[in-house]
Amino acid sequence: MDAIVTDRLTLSYGSVNALKEVTFAVHRGELYGIIGADGAGKTTLFRILATLVLPDSGQAWVDGYDVKAQYREIRRRIGYMPGRFSLYQDLSVKENLSFYASVFGTTIKENYELIAPIYSHLEPFARRKAGNLSGGMKQKLALCCALIHKPSVLFLDEPTTGVDPVSRQEFWDMLGDLRSRGITILVSTPYMDEANRCDRIALMREGEFMQVDTPQHIIASYRDELWAAESDNMFRLLGDIRHFEGVKRCYTFGVEHHFTADATVVERLRTYLAARGYKELTIRRVAATIEDCYMQLEDKYHG
């Protein structure tokens, strides 16, 4: 059986549908990413899988155990890192780690080998209070605490939110390392650029999985011609491109605007924009990223 299997998981909070019939499976030893904006339902999904919340309907199994009936077994086997920093700020790095080790009935020494690559970053600050660590350090400590009992499945809910780019890189390197040790990892992130580090990803929006595949396949499945535009007046440019006939969609992407249109439309757009008096106007063909795929799917699913 796969490490994580769900069958039509559904949960609503009042009139808000947090999850709508989510069905997916994560293979053993897979690094599986759930990509979605805030409010997509990622945290709800994680809480159900971590046996913290019961679904309204549908079923889920983690490591072969049912999240409803066999939650005790699951709690022994998983490592869970919630979205916000949830360690004791007034305890030191070492104290936090040894506390969580005792919670899981083990010791730091026993499983040191697994956390060593991560904990080595923290060891110089072993006596520092967790509350005084930098964002990246906090996340590394939380990861250590979630790993201290050698879980077979690791749930990481937005572990890199609010962390600087360098630490984010390091964090994903660590996840890759853990995966190579056979730990199944389910990770969620709102950063589309992190999707490429996963084996497979699910693009999630408003409680639904829009597409599940490897990042490469998702990008390859992008059919439209994608262009990037830049000029001296980006705000006016966005409106002008959006309202130009033949342009399917246009959105801000970093410092540029991305839009999809056929090559013939782009030629006409070029002359139109030049006539509108834009300076330093450049329009070039670009390759799609996961974010572009997400935007395209969003249009498809929600008009």
Partner: peptide
């Protein structure tokens, strides 16, 4: 409030 209960609940304790 600080979210540590979430982690404790997801543990075998």
């Amino acid at each position: 409030e600080q979210g540590t209960m979430e982690v404790l609940l997801a543990s075998p304790v």
